[in-house]
Design a protein around this nucleic acid. Structure first.
Lengths: 188, 188
DNA sequence: CTTTTAGTGTGATCTACCTCACAACAAAGT
DNA sequence: ACTTTGTTGTGAGGTAGATCACACTAAAAG
């Protein structure tokens, strides 16, 4: 069951049994229910989350207008968090909410640092992960600047067809940066 | 002179003289003139660049419409590149162009890997750098989704006043994702 | 000194997308 | 079974910002 994590890491760096045992002891397992907040705007963020199952969204809510802007979805085998708040031990500016029942492995910041110091090879793994996240974010910026709502929707369908099927249009719209009504008028 | 690089790295990880010598030998120094392309759309990207002086833009040009979309500016003490193309040894989808005469330290991908393997502590440095880049990109995504052209301009002024003074409005507009005319009408 | 070339402002028009409003329907809670 | 809550479509009207067009000025380049 936790071997999901091991497989996940070993896609990038090999681990001995001892090394993996060291890794595993830093994670704690938690379950969350649909609609539960794993991270809440304005509160501290004690953990980083590796998802074993379920579906979450990382969302910024504009208090004034009550509008939601979704930065990312995450599902099995993904990492998700308000990383900024986690890494700097500040209060979250984003919320992370479960869109389905979700199981996750939780890594405290102290454990994160302990891992990095105790097992230098793991930095290789995290570097690769963050590089991938950075490049994805850059592509998203370009997409927001160059593409119309319709094009962005089509890109999303092409890249993550499973997400499009699992999620209501309201959520997709908040991710794409379009109003729900406009998305409804495009589609097909 | 190259000690700029040493100071830059030592802000995050300490280095012995020997370690720094090892680092330095992997970089080569190059000068570029204004309007010169350090990376060109469609071509391979042999180096990653750490800027010692000058000013560059990382830009995507839509061939069909001839429009420019600027992903990032970089100046002294910054890294800049089409990292995606560099890291995967594919052809660039972005160009990197000098907006002023620029001096840079160049790091080939082989040297990058050699550094990571030969001096594991350096991964700590790169991990911190990429995390910072990732978080900046995420903030930019949110800004594009939540803020008007006016607000985005004001954010840029607040965050990088020196850039706003050094750059023509055309370039700023292409960075902000607004037309030059609209930016001209806001300002003040 | 003269000629390009780059930078900037401003009007007029157009459009992709937003907002508000309402209706119909499915799903979930009690 | 009933009531609340979430999901989706669609009309009408409004707006931020794009696009096209032109004029003016400053700065390279010859």
């Amino acid at each position: 069951m936790e071997s999901k994590l091991r497989q996940h890491i070993e896609k990038l760096v090999p681990l001995t049994d001892d090394e993996y045992a060291f890794v595993e002891q830093h994670f704690t397992f938690k379950k969350f229910k649909k609609h539960q907040f794993m991270v809440q705007q304005g509160e501290p963020v004690p953990y980083n989350y590796y998802l074993l199952s379920g579906l979450t969204k990382l969302v910024y809510t504009d208090e004034a207008t009550d509008k939601q802007y979704i930065l990312a979805f995450a599902m099995e085998d993904w990492w998700d968090n308000d990383f900024q708040a986690y890494y700097t031990r500040t209060n979250a500016t984003l919320s992370m909410e479960c869109l389905e029942d979700t199981e996750a492995l939780c890594l405290s910041l102290d454990s994160f640092h302990a891992l990095r110091n105790g097992l230098p090879g793991i930095e290789h793994f995290f570097l690769e992960k963050v590089i991938a996240g950075f490049l994805a974010a850059q592509r998203r910026i370009l997409s927001l600047m160059t593409s119309s709502a319709q094009e962005r929707y089509e890109q999303l369908v092409a890249q993550h067809p499973s997400l499009v099927q699992r999620l209501p249009k309201t959520q997709l719209a908040a991710y794409l940066g379009v109003s729900r009504e406009t998305l409804s008028r495009l589609d097909f």
